[in-house]
Simulated scan of single mutants.
Amino acid sequence: MSLLLRALTAVIALALALPAARAQMLDKVSFGTNWVAEAEHGGFFQAVVDGTYKAYGLDVTIVPGGPNVNNRALLLAGKLDFFMSANTLQSFDAVANNVPVVAIAAMFQKDPQVLLAHPESKVAKLEDLKPLTLFVSKEGVASYFQWLKSEYGFSEDKIKPYTFNAQPFLADRKSAMQGYVTSEPYLVEKQAGFKPTVVLLADYGFNTYSTLIETRRDLTENKPDLVQRFVDGSVTGWYNYLYGDNKAANAMIKKLNPEMTDDLLNYSVLTMKENGIVDSGDSLKDGIGAMTDARMASFFDKMVRAGVVKRDVDFKKAYTLRFVNKGVGLNLRPKN
């Protein structure tokens, strides 16, 4: 074989080997959500389908949660690398119970928690809900309702158990029901044919972060570059999901959750944008995922006053600002 032919053969072999080598260079990462696939998780699916995570050197597998799935336990057991926690209270609880996890980014600047009322109740503000029967879940009573009691004087005497069934609310026009702004108002309108009055608790001072990325503390210490790439990729995914072409991400969500519809997905995305659920407040200057010490301290104080969290909890251990507030993805937000 001539020198030229050998050289050409070597070049061809190298070219063929490069894609495989690049694939092997991707760090495999697993991310567990806390519920079945839905638009509220859309930015993560977006980063998978549009190649964003790969651009950050990651091969990400999303593991959906559900009623019989405990992905947080899998995170603690080392079976998952990252987990999507519901709100800051879970982070405070982790510190209180010496669970070695830490919140590294907050995808939602506002918690989507709402109370829905019938139009006949003529509810115009949060306080107008006080005379109504309130359908609240056990978890809700232990968390946000304690804040409603301490900050606004609500009474537990008005509470009836919420079992994630809208029928009791629909049957009682002098009642209100908990829900998420991104889903329950849509479902009530579809089911009952009327637009409920929607009160978003975040607009009245319930300033927990929501949809946080959580990981084990040892991962932030031993593989900070990996953690940073996952945060940056997720942030970029959320910008692209909200403001770009999200059809492929929605297709992935529908494949994983056949009960999901295009109408609900579109409603959820529009509602997240209209209410600033993902992109508002500090994220406008620091980027999606933003967190601040002041906001964490403010929410902690409210939860202490409400008796939900003990004052001696070192809440600053619940989170780190090391991986956020870097302005990642700000160029992807529409200018107008």
Score class of each variant (00 low, 15 high):
V123W: 04
G153S: 02
S91Y: 04
M107I: 15
M107D: 09
G65S: 05
G66D: 08
F83R: 01
A117I: 09
F135R: 11
A106W: 07
L75T: 07
D93H: 13
V102D: 00
S150K: 06
A105F: 09
E151Y: 09
Q113V: 11
V95W: 13
Q90C: 11
A96K: 15
F135A: 09
A103G: 14
D128T: 14
L134W: 03
T133F: 10
K79V: 02
W147M: 02
Y152A: 05
F135N: 00
G153R: 14
I104G: 02
K138N: 12
L89H: 07
K110W: 05
E120F: 10
Y152I: 02
P131N: 08
L115D: 00
V63R: 03
K138W: 06
V136N: 06
P67W: 10
F82W: 08
F108D: 01
F108H: 12
N98A: 14
A86C: 05
G140W: 00
Q109W: 15
V136G: 00
F108E: 13
F82D: 02
L132G: 07
E139G: 13
V69H: 06
V63Y: 04
D128L: 14
L134R: 02
P119G: 07
V114P: 01
V102K: 04
K149I: 05
E120L: 11
V101C: 05
E139C: 03
F82H: 03
T133Y: 08
L134G: 03
S91V: 09
A105W: 06
Q146A: 01
E120D: 10
Q90I: 08
V95N: 11
V102M: 02
D111S: 14
N97K: 14
A105E: 06
S85P: 09
L115M: 06
V63G: 05
V102H: 00
D111Q: 05
W147F: 06
A73K: 14
G140K: 05
V102L: 03
G153K: 07
A94Q: 04
K122A: 12
N70V: 13
R72E: 15
N70R: 14
N87K: 06
Q109R: 10
L115I: 02
Q146M: 04
V102P: 01
K122T: 10
L76I: 12
V114W: 03
A106T: 10
L129C: 03
F82S: 04
S137P: 11
A77H: 06
V69K: 11
Q90H: 12
L148V: 11
V101W: 01
M107K: 05
G66A: 09
F145M: 04
V99A: 09
P131H: 15
T133W: 08
V136F: 08
N68C: 07
P131C: 05
V95I: 14
A77S: 14
L74I: 00
I104Q: 06
V63P: 02
L129D: 03
P119E: 12
A106E: 11
L80T: 01
I104M: 04
N71T: 11
K79G: 05
